[in-house]
């Protein structure tokens, strides 16, 4: 499956431009991480990809066909978890998944439901009414419905919100496994979620793509721009010296700071960048620009 964005733009009726001239190509198998700060345009892009919104400019091609013509085809191969979703609270988890399976036209819905309940560790809640589930369990039910029928395209918008650390690890590996033969698009602002599993990253901010490539490429781009220093070594405000503090750690010797900057000051000792450093460096550069 291949999705191409060509000069994709989106302006909401209130005049806010959410996306501007995005060009991108996504192809299975791949697990693509979509990173960006809040309001960057990630959810808008997701909604455009699942045809929940109509772009105001440009086009989306699904296997070479414009989305408006391939909408039915796309939906038949799509598993989608939006950031903000609800469930039929009066149904049990299994009934809800059965319902969604029917919507997706899955023939052997019982087996499919069983499979996804297993995948999201929700088997023991199969007979529980949805309104009785916790936030994390509801999120897992949401992920389960997206996985129904092994769709070729999986789009998750902030899927790990509300999950405990153990569950997040579980789902990261689940997404990774799923991406072995499918296209998985994972939108998040949690770097850890994408760091270990994504083979491709897209960083978006202000409606524009700031970076598209592998995590390694992103990390490399921050090389020489990450440093550490003791806070007491700094005279004045670090931000005014072009530094963006990414971490402050209290130690027995004082506060140790980690920062990114175009040019590191002399008191900062260079460090190997992490993905988070690289991401923050990218975003901070954009803010400065």
């Amino acid at each position: 499956m291949k999705i191409e964005l060509q000069n994709l733009s989106m302006i909401y009726p209130n005049g806010r431009q959410a996306l501007r001239n995005l060009n991108l190509s996504l192809e299975a198998p791949s697990l693509v991480g979509l990173l960006g700060p809040n309001g960057a345009g990630k959810s808008t892009l997701m909604k455009l990809l699942v045809a929940a919104l109509t772009p105001t400019g440009g086009s989306i091609l699904v296997d070479g066909q414009p989305l408006e013509r391939a909408e039915r085809l796309l939906k038949a191969r799509l598993g989608y978890l939006p950031q903000d979703f609800g469930l039929f609270d009066e149904l049990t988890t299994a009934q809800f998944l059965d319902y969604m399976a029917a919507l997706k036209g899955i023939r052997d819905s019982r087996a499919a439901v069983k499979e996804v309940l297993q995948a999201v560790n929700l088997e023991e809640k199969a007979g529980a009414v949805l309104r009785t589930l916790s936030g994390g369990q509801r999120q897992r039910a949401g992920i389960a419905q997206a996985l129904l029928g092994n769709p070729q395209l999986l789009i998750f918008d902030e899927p790990t919100v509300g999950l405990d650390p153990e569950e997040r690890v579980h789902f990261r590996s689940l997404f990774s496994r799923a991406a072995q033969e499918r296209l998985v698009l994972l939108s998040t602002h949690i770097i850890e979620d994408v760091q270990s599993v994504c083979d491709s990253l897209i960083v978006i901010d202000g409606g524009q793509i700031l970076f598209a490539g592998t995590p390694e490429q992103l990390i490399r781009s921050a090389s020489g721009h990450v440093g550490v220093f003791w806070e007491k070594e700094v005279s004045g405000e670090p931000e005014k010296q072009g530094l963006r503090i990414t971490a402050r750690v209290h130690t027995g010797q004082g506060i140790r700071c980690r920062a990114v900057a175009d040019e590191l000051p002399a008191y900062a000792r260079p460090e190997e960048p992490t993905l988070e450093d690289a991401y923050l460096y990218l975003i901070s550069r954009e803010v400065v620009r």
């Binding site: 929940a52 979703f85 469930l87």
Partner: peptide
């Protein structure tokens, strides 16, 4: 209930 966000993605 915003369940339409899920159903609309299917049909």
């Amino acid at each position: 209930s915003r369940v339409e966000a899920l159903t609309d993605a299917a049909v």
